[in-house]
């Protein structure tokens, strides 16, 4: 008889606390859902703020960063003397490795017609260091720009590059504006 009474008291306390926790969860849940965003926001860097410090290559949780150099071809001047392709002070303007700026040789060029060359980025090789972006921006048209490749990015809760970005260029954006390329209005998006 006495034992029953003890159990009942314990049950009563348990039920009370359970109801309390349930109500708490409900309040938090509904409070947050009312101002949540449907779907998700994704990380992107603003090339207008980017200072090409090189952290994108080293800080990403992925080995071979999800940040890649994107070549906005519409902005390119097709120069023979491309400041994003050749190392400053290169001895010869040939495609020899010692003359190239890109440490991984990810930029290739093909002859179009006198005096123009087409530049292409082999994305598998690009490590997102931004060396070419810096020189193209300083001396060229700025058609080489760093961007988070949304198909590679694993969308970490807190982007490791964003945490160490000296220019605070990273922010979460809506999927509709997944790329923030500058100086370029219309984007042709491919899957």
């Amino acid at each position: 008889m006495k034992k029953d009474k003890i159990i009942n008291r314990r049950d009563f306390i348990q039920t009370g606390i359970r109801t309390g926790i349930g109500a708490g969860l409900g309040i938090i849940g509904f409070g947050l859902i009312s101002r949540s965003v449907e779907g998700k926001t994704i990380w992107q860097l603003d090339p207008a703020k980017c200072v090409q410090c090189g952290n994108c290559a080293t800080e990403c949780v992925l080995q071979a960063s999800a940040v890649k150099c994107i070549h906005v071809t519409d902005m390119c001047g097709y120069c023979d003397l491309c400041s994003g392709f050749f190392r400053p002070g290169a001895l010869e303007l040939t495609t020899g490795a010692e003359n190239k700026l890109c440490p991984t040789g990810a930029i290739v060029r093909t002859y179009v017609e006198e005096p123009y060359f087409e530049y292409r980025i082999i994305e598998e090789l690009c490590n997102g260091c931004g060396k070419c972006v810096q020189n193209c921006g300083a001396f060229g048209n700025g058609s080489l720009q760093l961007q988070v490749r949304q198909d590679l990015c694993v969308n970490c809760n807190q982007c490791a590059i964003a945490r160490s970005c000296p220019a605070e260029a990273y922010s979460r954006v809506e999927p509709e504006t997944a790329y923030l390329l500058k100086g370029f209005e219309e984007l042709k998006i491919t899957d």
């Binding site: 994704i42 071809t73 017609e113 087409e118 949304q150 999927p175 997944a178 984007l187 998006i189 491919t190």
Partner: peptide, 12 residues
């Protein structure tokens, strides 16, 4: 007659 290639980007 060379045509400027499109900028390639992929979506999430």
């Amino acid at each position: 007659g060379y045509e400027v290639p499109e900028t390639q980007i992929a979506l999430a």
